[in-house]
């Protein structure tokens, strides 16, 4: 599976969309994903004839919408339907599918810090040629950011952001041959916790793409790429080159 393009959007990038009243029914997760996907799809010429398959990944899910739903339930004794429908992890996928109707298949993956890697691992099983969209998003309402950082022993500075990437799994395709990046052949998960955290700066749980893109972009032709997660576990990618 070869990387074709990558994009990242942070909450600052979508400040205009957030304040637009037309988007009042959309969550921050949805706006982040839509912006990141828009930038991603505009940054590359998609080959014609290959189906688009989307894996939408989130470590926390629609945290802000879930919090608002419960807060309203607790304080005002009412359950707001828009908050409930938006609180489900899959709502972000639903929103993206409506914004980008040419996406044919979709799945929502929520494996905490390994959400992106779970999606990549599942995507590697796709036998039929396809364009694989991997999107990782997490967003934190101000009320919960510190609490969530505390759950990581305060060693992560959490950010609200979305990273997305498009891969092609057909190595005979011209687009694949034109891509300068190595192809992911396999992924290995090591859940033994190594000593010490890497200080990753602003981070979000569904953020496996930034590090992967960074390493692939070095174009060092390394056959193995190791990436450490904030909890000390690690991911190892087997990479092949044309």
């Amino acid at each position: 599976m070869k990387l074709l393009a990558y994009s990242k959007t942070t909450e600052i990038d979508i400040s205009e969309q957030i304040s637009n009243p037309l988007n009042r029914k959309k969550s921050i997760n949805m706006l982040l994903c839509e912006d990141s996907l828009k930038k991603l799809l505009e940054s590359t010429t998609l080959p014609v004839g290959l189906p688009l398959k989307l894996f939408l990944c989130s470590g926390e899910g629609e945290l802000a919408q879930t919090y608002k739903f419960y807060y309203d339930l607790a304080v005002n004794q009412r359950a707001r339907p828009i908050l409930f429908q938006n609180s489900l992890h899959n709502s972000t996928l639903g929103s993206c599918s409506i914004a980008f109707p040419n996406i044919e298949m979709g799945a929502t993956i929520s494996s905490s810090l390994h959400s992106i890697e779970s999606a990549l691992d599942i995507a590697l099983n796709e036998i039929e040629p396809a364009l694989i969209l991997i999107v990782g998003v997490d967003a934190y309402p101000s009320e919960l950011k510190e609490i969530k950082e505390a759950s990581h022993s305060g060693k992560i500075n959490l950010e609200s952001a979305c990273s997305s990437a498009i891969f092609i799994n057909d190595k005979s395709h011209a687009c694949s041959k034109a891509s300068p990046f190595g192809a992911i052949k396999d992924i290995h998960f090591d859940f033994s916790v190594k000593e010490g955290f890497e200080n990753l700066g602003p981070y979000f749980p569904a953020n496996g793409l930034d590090s992967l893109f960074e390493k692939l972009s070095l174009l060092k032709k390394e056959e193995k790429i190791d990436i450490f997660k904030p909890n000390g576990t690690s991911i190892s990618y087997d990479i092949t080159y044309d």
Partner: peptide, 21 residues
């Protein structure tokens, strides 16, 4: 490996298809 699929009411049916893959 453990992967969690959270595609709402289709989650486990989708997982069954993924397992087949």
């Amino acid at each position: 490996k453990i992967h969690i699929i959270s595609s709402a009411c289709s989650a486990s049916t989708q997982a069954l298809g993924m397992a087949h893959d």
